[in-house]
């Protein structure tokens, strides 16, 4: 893959990222490249710096050092909102959905389309939202029987699907998923794996943070291993076993 990638431009390139909290260096000089249509798993023990690294890429933290490039252009982000504006969509473990609202509203939350009623009254265009939601869900091969039901009444897998649909609808150039299967049963985990593969097939790269070896080996092309704030491994998923991974994570190798 590395020879193949050499000719391609990475979607995301981070070089020498550093983040310190007081005396603690949470992320120490980490560089990574993410290529189009690539699924990269970020593995590591608790406190290895995975979340901090991701938060720098998704605009939550400002790096203390290093550079981030999106499609070749250097970017700086003051907020997660700016990151989203640039096409970096992060799906957090808690999904950040409004459970009292339906799927279509959640997909469009904060960016609702409007139309004018009688030329003056600006109202939310629910018809447009429903039609567009159907389109994006179809594109992702997701079936949700009734989009007008509140999220509260949906299963964990369906919620995850809505969160992914929201990211994709807004033309994500990079999707980051934080422990996407943590709260799901086995059949629903599979559904999420399929969704990741669908994203990949549409050339959207995915970074997936996971503790779950099954997750990692089911979907990842490449695995980046973090330990104590540093990148200690960057390997093709096909070339390692879970034992290798664990050794790298705990530093026994």
């Amino acid at each position: 893959m590395s020879e193949q990638n050499a000719t391609r431009e990475p979607v995301l390139r981070a070089t020498g990222l550093i983040k310190r909290f007081g005396g603690l260096t949470a992320v120490n000089d980490v560089s990574l490249d993410i290529y189009p249509g690539e699924v990269v798993a970020l593995a590591g023990d608790n406190g290895a710096g995975k979340s901090t690294l991701i938060k720098m890429i998704s605009g939550v933290y400002r790096p203390d050092g290093g550079h981030i490039y999106l499609e070749g252009r250097e970017i700086t982000m003051a907020s997660p909102l700016e990151a989203r504006g640039l096409g970096i969509e992060t799906i957090y473990q808690d999904l950040a959905l409004c459970e009292n609202l339906d799927a279509t509203v959640n997909i469009f939350l904060g960016r609702e389309p409007t139309k004018r009623l009688l030329g003056i009254f600006k109202q939310v265009d629910r018809g447009h939202m429903l039609a567009e939601s159907n389109k994006v869900l179809e594109r992702l091969d997701i079936k949700i029987p009734n989009l007008r039901r509140p999220i509260r009444q949906m299963s964990g897998g369906q919620r995850q699907a809505v969160a992914i649909a929201r990211a994709v609808y807004w033309n994500a150039r990079l999707v980051i998923m934080d422990e996407p299967t943590a709260a799901l049963g086995v059949p629903e985990q599979r559904k999420v794996h399929e969704l990741v593969k669908t994203l990949k097939a549409q050339n959207v790269p995915v970074i997936i943070i996971s503790h779950n070896m099954q997750d990692i080996f089911a979907v990842a092309d490449r695995i980046i291993v973090m330990r104590r704030g540093q990148k200690v491994g960057d390997v093709r998923a096909a070339e390692v076993t879970d034992d290798d991974l664990v050794s790298m994570m705990v530093g026994a190798a």
Partner: peptide
């Protein structure tokens, strides 16, 4: 029931954090 303002009122009451992250 029909405006963005109304919808955002529901969103804030449903999940303030999510509303914030969605840019409301």
């Amino acid at each position: 029931s029909r405006t963005k303002f109304g919808l955002h009122t529901y969103a804030i009451g449903g999940n303030k954090e999510a509303a914030m992250r969605a840019g409301i």
